[in-house]
Design a protein around this nucleic acid. Sequence first.
RNA 1: GCGCCUAUAGCUCAGAGGAUAGAGCACCGGCCUCCGGAGCCGGGUGCGCAGGUUCGAGUCCUGCUAGGCGCACCA
Length: 587
Amino acid sequence: MTQQSGPVSARTRVGPVGEMQTALARAVAAAVAGAAAEGRLPPEALEILEGLGDGHVEVPRESGRGDFASTAALRLAGPCRLAPRQAAEVVVSRLDLSGLPVDRVEVAGPGFLNFFLAPGWLSGVVDRIRAEGPAYGRSDVGRGVRVQVEFVSANPTGPLGVVNARAAAVGDCLAALLEAAGFDVEREYYVNDAGSQIERLGRSVEARWLELQGREVEIPEGGYRGEYLIDVARAYEARRGDWARAADPVARAADMGRFAVARMVESHRELLEAYGVRFDVWFSQEALMKTGALDRTLADLEARGHVFRRQGALWLRTTAFGDDRDRVLVRSNGEPTYFLADIAYHRDKYARGFRHVIDIWGPDHHGYIGRMMAAVAALGYPRDALEVLIVQMVRLMQGGELAKMSKRRGQIVPMADLLAEVGRDAARFFFLMRSAESHLDFDIDLAKHKTADNPVYYVQYAHARISSILRQAGTASGPGAPGENNAEHRLLTAEHRLLTEEAELALVRRLADFPEEVAGAALARAPHRLTRYAVELATAFHKFYDTCRVLTDDERLRLARLALVDATRVVLANALGLLGVSAPDRM
RNA sequence: GCGCCUAUAGCUCAGAGGAUAGAGCACCGGCCUCCGGAGCCGGGUGCGCAGGUUCGAGUCCUGCUAGGCGCACCA
């Protein structure tokens, strides 16, 4: 079983940097074509290079190796049986860089082509960012493909825990990234409001309710023992107590189950909204089942010939699609499994028109991926129609120890408690600092620090500091209508070629990277890259601030730097916006 | 037993087949007549082990070791 990763290609060519890479790649390709035509490179060279697309142009890690490097010669050398450096020399001799801001090209190391660009090659970026504003960073690599991201989807039988908080941050940010990258995204929450767990929930509420009536009752086997159900029972008593006392016990427990689910779902929705996460669709499992979706799904799978009967049960032959064993759809007692319901749910997703579905699951479900992928394949959908991401577990650390936030041992820590402790911004930022699939140690002490060692404050501080500078300069922060006399208007005349300090150029360079960072993070399903970028951008700004005075008496330099600072504000705000973290003007 | 994930600096973690592997925390030492010091600068014998593919491997493949998780006619 291999997990499908969907339309993932971590390399994208968008934004100012990507556009330059594409232009350089074209120039290299033209040089190779020219050399091949002259017989100085074998005919297959061009074909090999085309197979690389523009992926052979990269950004060298080390400064001093140019602004860009091409590995074309290295890749041609083997198949063409040439010495890499020699191939590089041939390419360079044919390079036509007219119209490109390239100062010089060097052959370096084993055969890299290093391009050194003219110092002002990014001088247009500042205006571009300030003109695009909130749209800067968006691209169309997704080409409007409809994608659904389903996440959190916690059972409505108890409060949300910290893993749900992590999944919410990851799912919401991933959805935002995909939107920014040009996909047509819907956020969905699946409500498991059917099945035996809801019966157990109802009986558990009933037990609490009977307790409130002064009766001593055991919570049923397999029931939910959390004290939150006492509140549910109280609310139920207030709303439907009279009816319940006269009602048939079976109907009463069922009614309590429905009541508890509605209440739980509502509290989850409220908590998530307070966390800044809104779903487009809250999808009810019960509603789906009422439409007969299970029967239709079963019939579909049978028609496709993947269902068989064994020992009185109906099975899906998932082993035909990479699973390591076959799975039961309908138990011998006639009860459908949760698996069948899940297949019906996914079938419904595709029926609703999604070309690509991303499920974000908790760590306890990774064993479920194989059968779900197999089921989607059995339904006849392409292998990349479904993609499952696992958000790994969270350990809360405090004072270097496992935090004891939960009152009882082994009990999950409620999401609400964590938010009350560290706040929404810190929680979201910290959950997005690590790749979703690796275990996370959440440092509560650090998250609460209001100092620079706390990354979220460090980034927000950069934004607040910028706002302060712009306030002092009399520049409206934000794209208001500029009066012709104010500084906002005069920034349009800023001369970006005056930005020559190393710290200034480094900052411009980081700003120029943003669209590629966004698209790359979206395609790689890696929101944590964006968090990292935000920190790096803040660092670049603070370094600039430390070495370059913005509000100088030199009017022209002052305008140039103000424009740069304002562009930085835009990008920081856009990055924080995608992360779901606030960008304060004051702290 | 089988499967999946993880293994990178004292700690927590980035790392997109490229050149000399990076951040943050912690620790030590510097920097404010000036736009917010919630800042900046400096200090580092680290890719679990062994093979392989490649011009080039932390990255891909195989085996091993260690940790985590999963392996229901549960949801």
